[in-house]
C-alpha cells in the first residue's frame, strides 16, 4: 500500500513526467497522442478487476461488472484506434529528393 507522503511524491513526480512528455510534441501528433494517453488511462481496468474481485453483494457485483466492462472498453478501444492512426505515419520513401526538411 502507498500512503501519505510517499503518495504525494508519486503524484508530484508523475505530474511533472506527464508535463515533460507533452511539452515538446509537434502538432501533427496531438490527436494520436491524445488517443494514446486515452489508452494509458485504460489501466483503470486493473482497478475495476479488483473492485469486481472484492465484490460480495449482488449490487457490488453489478457495479463491478460495469466497471470492468467500461475499463476493458477504454483499454482495448484506446489501443486499437491509436495503433490504427500511428500505423499510417510513414516517411516518404523515394520521391522526396532534395528540398531540405
Amino acid at each position: 500500500m502507498i500512503e501519505g507522503l510517499a503518495a504525494i511524491y508519486i503524484f508530484m513526480l508523475a505530474g511533472f513526467t506527464g508535463y515533460e512528455i507533452i511539452s515538446k510534441v509537434p502538432v501533427i501528433l496531438h490527436t494520436p497522442l491524445m488517443s494514446g494517453s486515452n489508452f494509458v488511462h485504460g489501466i483503470v481496468l486493473v482497478g475495476a478487476m479488483v473492485a469486481l474481485g472484492i465484490a460480495e453483494t449482488g449490487t457490488e457485483q453489478i457495479i463491478g461488472f460495469i466497471a470492468v466492462l467500461l475499463g476493458a472498453g477504454n483499454a482495448v478501444g484506446g489501443y486499437v484506434v491509436t495503433e490504427r492512426m500511428l500505423e499510417m505515419f510513414k516517411p516518404s520513401d523515394k520521391q522526396s529528393k532534395g528540398e531540405g526538411s
Binding site: 503524484f11 508523475a14 494517453s37 494509458v40 482497478g47
Partner: peptide
C-alpha cells in the same frame, strides 16, 4: 484508494499531460 501504483502513476501522468494538451 486501491493502493495501486500503476493506476496512480499512469492516471496522474495522463492527467497532467492531458491538461497541457
Amino acid at each position: 484508494v486501491l493502493g495501486n501504483a500503476a493506476m496512480i502513476i499512469a492516471g496522474i501522468v495522463v492527467g497532467s499531460a492531458g491538461s497541457l494538451l
